[in-house]
Deep mutational scan, measured.
Amino acid sequence: HYVEVNGKKIQATSAEEAEKIAKKFAKIYNATVLDLGNYYKVT
């Protein structure tokens, strides 16, 4: 599981952790979290 933010991949140990990381970055960048199955993308 990982999160992609601005083209950078951030490794996460679980889907739950990946979701938390994605939501945190989405809040910082006022962005949207896309759940793409095996990873989250912040756009």
Rank of each mutant, 00 (worst) to 15 (best):
36 L>M: 15
5 V>D: 00
30 N>M: 08
23 K>Y: 14
31 A>N: 02
31 A>M: 14
30 N>G: 14
26 A>E: 05
42 V>S: 02
20 K>E: 11
17 E>R: 07
40 Y>R: 01
3 V>R: 01
35 D>L: 14
3 V>E: 00
34 L>C: 11
39 Y>V: 07
19 E>L: 15
37 G>I: 07
25 F>Q: 02
25 F>Y: 13
22 A>H: 01
37 G>K: 04
28 I>T: 07
39 Y>M: 07
40 Y>N: 02
21 I>W: 09
37 G>E: 06
33 V>P: 03
13 T>P: 10
11 Q>F: 15
10 I>V: 07
30 N>W: 08
19 E>K: 13
24 K>R: 14
22 A>S: 03
40 Y>S: 02
26 A>R: 05
17 E>M: 10
22 A>E: 00
43 T>D: 09
15 A>S: 10
25 F>V: 05
27 K>L: 14
26 A>D: 00
17 E>V: 08
24 K>H: 15
5 V>W: 12
14 S>P: 00
21 I>Q: 02
13 T>S: 14
35 D>M: 13
1 H>W: 15
29 Y>S: 03
25 F>M: 09
38 N>V: 09
31 A>Q: 05
26 A>G: 06
34 L>N: 06
16 E>K: 12
32 T>E: 11
22 A>D: 00
29 Y>G: 04
9 K>R: 14
12 A>M: 08
42 V>C: 09
1 H>A: 08
7 G>M: 04
36 L>I: 05
12 A>V: 09
21 I>K: 02
31 A>V: 09
23 K>V: 09
28 I>E: 09
25 F>N: 00
23 K>E: 08
17 E>H: 13
39 Y>A: 06
14 S>Y: 02
7 G>A: 04
27 K>H: 11
19 E>T: 06
23 K>N: 11
38 N>E: 09
4 E>R: 04
36 L>G: 05
1 H>F: 15
28 I>M: 14
24 K>M: 15
17 E>L: 08
16 E>I: 11
22 A>V: 04
42 V>I: 10
8 K>N: 08
12 A>C: 15
5 V>P: 00
21 I>C: 11
43 T>F: 13
20 K>V: 09
40 Y>M: 05
2 Y>R: 02
19 E>G: 08
27 K>G: 07
41 K>F: 09
7 G>F: 05
28 I>D: 06
38 N>H: 13
11 Q>K: 12
27 K>I: 12
24 K>F: 15
1 H>S: 09
16 E>A: 13
41 K>V: 15
43 T>S: 11
40 Y>E: 01
37 G>N: 05
15 A>V: 10
9 K>W: 13
5 V>M: 07
34 L>E: 12
8 K>T: 11
6 N>I: 05
28 I>W: 14
14 S>I: 04
29 Y>T: 04
24 K>T: 11
8 K>W: 14
13 T>N: 13
15 A>K: 15
43 T>W: 12
23 K>Q: 13
20 K>T: 10
6 N>D: 07
33 V>H: 02
18 A>F: 03
15 A>E: 05
1 H>K: 12
42 V>L: 08
42 V>P: 03
15 A>R: 15
15 A>M: 15
17 E>P: 00
29 Y>M: 11
38 N>I: 10
31 A>P: 00
8 K>Q: 11
26 A>N: 02
43 T>E: 12
13 T>D: 12
41 K>M: 10
39 Y>R: 04
17 E>D: 10
10 I>Y: 12
19 E>I: 12
35 D>T: 09
8 K>V: 13
6 N>R: 10
19 E>F: 15
1 H>Q: 05
33 V>C: 11
29 Y>A: 04
27 K>V: 11
20 K>D: 08
32 T>Y: 11
14 S>F: 03
11 Q>A: 12
13 T>V: 12
41 K>H: 06
29 Y>L: 12
19 E>W: 15
10 I>T: 02
15 A>Q: 14
40 Y>L: 10
40 Y>W: 14
25 F>E: 00
39 Y>G: 09
26 A>Q: 07
5 V>R: 01
23 K>P: 00
2 Y>Q: 02
20 K>P: 00
4 E>I: 14
26 A>T: 03
30 N>R: 10
35 D>F: 15
32 T>H: 10
12 A>G: 03
27 K>P: 00
30 N>T: 05
40 Y>H: 04
34 L>A: 06
9 K>P: 04
6 N>G: 10
18 A>W: 04
29 Y>H: 08
15 A>Y: 08
20 K>R: 14
27 K>M: 13
25 F>I: 12
30 N>D: 07
32 T>D: 09
29 Y>I: 05
41 K>R: 10
39 Y>Q: 02
31 A>I: 06
14 S>E: 01
27 K>D: 08
4 E>W: 11
14 S>G: 05
27 K>F: 13
35 D>N: 14
8 K>E: 09
42 V>W: 05
25 F>C: 10
10 I>D: 02
10 I>F: 11
40 Y>P: 02
28 I>F: 13
9 K>E: 05
15 A>I: 13
21 I>S: 01
16 E>F: 10
22 A>K: 01
4 E>C: 15
10 I>H: 06
33 V>L: 07
20 K>I: 10
8 K>H: 13
38 N>A: 11
30 N>V: 05
21 I>G: 00
22 A>W: 07
14 S>N: 10
13 T>W: 11
31 A>R: 04
37 G>W: 07
1 H>V: 10
34 L>F: 07
35 D>E: 09
15 A>P: 09
1 H>M: 11
26 A>V: 06
20 K>Y: 12
2 Y>V: 06
33 V>T: 03
8 K>G: 05
1 H>E: 02
41 K>L: 14
10 I>E: 01
39 Y>F: 09
6 N>S: 06
3 V>T: 02
32 T>A: 09
9 K>M: 12
6 N>C: 15
43 T>Q: 11
30 N>F: 08
14 S>T: 10
30 N>Y: 06
16 E>L: 11
34 L>W: 07
4 E>F: 10
36 L>H: 07
39 Y>S: 07
15 A>L: 14
40 Y>K: 04
32 T>P: 06
33 V>W: 08
